[in-house]
Design a protein around this nucleic acid. Structure first.
Length: 590
RNA sequence: GCGCCAGUAGCUCAGUUGGAUAGAGUGCUUGGCUACGAACCAAGAGGUCGGGGGUUCGAAUCCCUUCUGGCGCACCA
């Protein structure tokens, strides 16, 4: 159900007004003959990098140079002359600058309105209805349940969870989802590994050969030992398959429980835990295979059923144009993929297609977002193509590819290997690194770049980590509010504050930044880039610290004090909201 | 061989989808608490935006080419 908020997006509103004013001016100028009658060109209204170039700026005059056949500055002059009166708009004045930019400066009223709105909306300030309640599924982490989570899952968790928060705040109906790979080859491997460890307990380490491709981790030994302690009966361990099944039935639910606990500790809770096994048991995989066959997307070869990956993934950039060891021209067949093996067992690709079919058709999501490791990028085009092959729209499946995390210790990369079980687990990471720090750190970089996680730095827990810088700004505000409250001065009605009072550069810079919050959330949501929010939080803290050093709150005239108190409270609210989205704690003191 | 991602200050990274003199953090040099919290702020130095072409009023951003690094090309997931 769509929640009902009062939405406020100061920059977006002002940009719309600027665009309307300029369009109106252009029409008037053409009407009066100051400009020739032409169709208006596409033009931009943007926020200049430097405030001396205005709060907003438009390139209309430059963009129109060609269609009007006049120099940009001449066009700008004609436009400004034709501009209607600015009373009642967010703007106080307009300037022509540089090659022909039209720069608009906010009226003092705009700043006061922003402070008022943030105060009035409180915990909801930043929310918009941009997403119009569309149903989005965000699937992230989906770690292999055969073992504990690693550093990459820590990044994927912070990324996916915060992306989901951004989408939620931007007005989408978001479902957070974990896909449990509890079927297929890796589960077989899991069972064999467990069985080998179990038999080693029975007969001695040397008496039993551990499978070469088995899971080497210590956790496998622990699970086997627990099972042995409960059900130890070496004589009954005759039937290999029965033993493996029993071990999996024991160990898998415990591992999944472990994943849930570790993620909860990391402040991630999911709406849905979706097991792959459900797709097999419920016939969904078979159903999708039939649909693909019916649309001619599959064929049989060498006893297996193949998916025409080459045909359907072409439009999404077929990124497997050749295979290892093959030079030159590669036929389409060589790019195709097996869906059902010759032994009759479907591959994971088949299950994954069924899974996404389930998201779109069975559960009716408008869009599915998958957060995947960069090593899965070869899978993107064929999954999207498979949606098309099923008569759905592959464009509605969006994959956020996340580059690897490189662990640094003593300034040097630590080699990680899941196979040998030497990876750092999420759980052990969180034993050393504060959750706030980890959540913030893993969202500091956009997903596409390789991240270095400096363990020494993260553990150090000092102000090198920007999360403390942000939290400090909040604590500072709380301290001021507390001090003033002790004197009986509280932030009562922000609407009563006199707008002209907040006119210092530091005050206006801070307010501009507060005003940018809703647009920043929308930007993070539509670019699938939650790292923008951590950077926003840091910048907001910076603006506050600057304000703090140049403007006093406590010992100034009452009217100014009220206005600045309202600004402090608006900053506090915005810091609180952005940190809450990141699931970072918001301390009143530290 | 082919594909995906990346290359911006000594280091780690931004750059709001083509805009004005390319910005932060960190490190280095220097200054600011008898003050609402100095876990803060201010100033300075530091750049061939990997290289080379092209597109236009205008390019770190778009196109081509080239170099370098990471990842991927299974009847594994």
């Amino acid at each position: 159900m769509q929640k009902n908020y009062l939405y406020y997006n100061p920059f977006a509103t002002a940009m719309d007004e600027a665009r309307a004013l300029l369009t109106q001016a252009a029409r008037a100028a053409m009407e009066s003959g100051a400009l020739p009658q032409r169709d208006l060109p596409d033009f931009a209204v943007e926020i200049p990098a430097d405030v001396k170039n205005g709060d907003l700026a438009s390139n209309l005059a430059m963009a129109g140079a060609r269609v009007f056949g006049l120099p940009p500055r001449k066009i700008a002059e004609a436009l400004c002359a034709a501009l209607p009166a600015l009373d009642g708009t967010p703007f106080a004045r307009v300037e022509i600058a540089g090659p022909g930019f039209i720069n608009l400066f906010f009226a003092q009223r705009w700043f006061a309105d922003t402070v008022f709105a943030a105060n009035a909306l409180g915990d909801d300030y930043g929310r918009t209805n941009y997403g119009a309640g569309r149903k989005y599924n965000v699937e992230f982490v989906s770690a292999n349940p055969t073992g504990p989570m690693h550093l990459g899952n820590a990044r994927g968790g912070a990324l996916g969870d915060c992306l989901a928060a951004a989408l939620d705040w931007a007005g989408y109906d978001v479902t957070r989802e974990f896909y449990i790979n509890d079927a297929g080859n890796q589960i077989v491997k899991f069972g064999k590994s467990l069985a080998a460890r179990y038999l080693q307990i029975c007969h001695g380490e040397d008496a039993v050969v551990f499978p070469e491709d088995g899971y080497q981790g210590e956790d496998i030994r622990v699970l086997a030992q627990q099972f042995f302690d409960l059900n130890g009966d070496c004589a009954a361990a005759g039937d290999a398959e029965a033993l493996q099944n029993a071990l999996v039935a024991y160990a898998l639910p415990r591992n999944i429980e472990g994943l849930k606990n570790d993620l909860a500790k990391y402040r991630i809770t999911y709406d849905v835990w979706f097991p792959e096994s459900r797709l097999h048991a419920g016939g969904a995989v078979r159903e999708v295979l039939e649909k693909l066959a019916a649309s001619g997307a599959t064929y049989e070869k060498d006893g297996a059923i193949w998916y025409r990956a080459a045909r359907y993934s072409e439009k999404y950039g077929a990124n497997r144009n050749a295979r290892k060891g093959l030079d030159g021209e590669v036929t389409d067949e060589e790019k195709d993929e097996v869906l059902v093996r010759a032994n009759g067992i479907p591959t994971y690709l088949a299950a994954d297609i069924a899974y996404h079919y389930n998201k779109f058709v069975t559960r009716g999501f408008d869009t599915a977002i998958d957060v995947w490791g960069a090593d899965h990028h070869g899978h993107v085009a064929r999954m999207k193509g498979a949606m098309d092959a099923l008569g759905l729209d592959g464009e509605k499946l969006n994959v956020v590819l996340m580059q690897f995390v490189r662990l640094l210790q003593d300034g040097k990369p630590v080699r990680m290997s899941k196979r040998t079980g030497k990876a750092i687990t999420l759980s052990s990471l969180l034993d050393e690194v504060p959750i706030d720090s980890a959540r913030f750190f893993f969202n500091l970089r956009e997903s596409g770049s390789i991240m270095d996680f400096d363990l020494d730095l993260a553990v150090k827990q000092d102000s090198d980590n920007p999360v403390y810088y942000v939290q400090y700004a909040h604590a500072r505000i709380c301290s001021i509010l507390k001090k003033l409250a002790e004197e009986g001065i509280v932030c009562t009605d922000a609407a009563a504050c006199e707008p002209s009072l907040l006119s210092e550069d530091a005050e206006k810079a801070l307010i501009r930044h507060i005003a940018a919050f809703p647009a920043e959330i929308i930007g993070a949501a539509k670019n699938y880039d939650p790292a923008r929010l951590t950077r926003y939080a840091v910048e907001l803290a910076t603006q506050y610290h600057k304000f703090y050093t140049s403007c006093r709150v406590k010992d100034v005239a009452p009217a100014l004090r009220s206005a600045r108190l309202a600004l402090c409270n608006a900053t506090k609210i915005t810091l609180h909201n952005v940190l809450t989205m990141l699931k970072v704690s918001v301390p009143d003191s530290m």
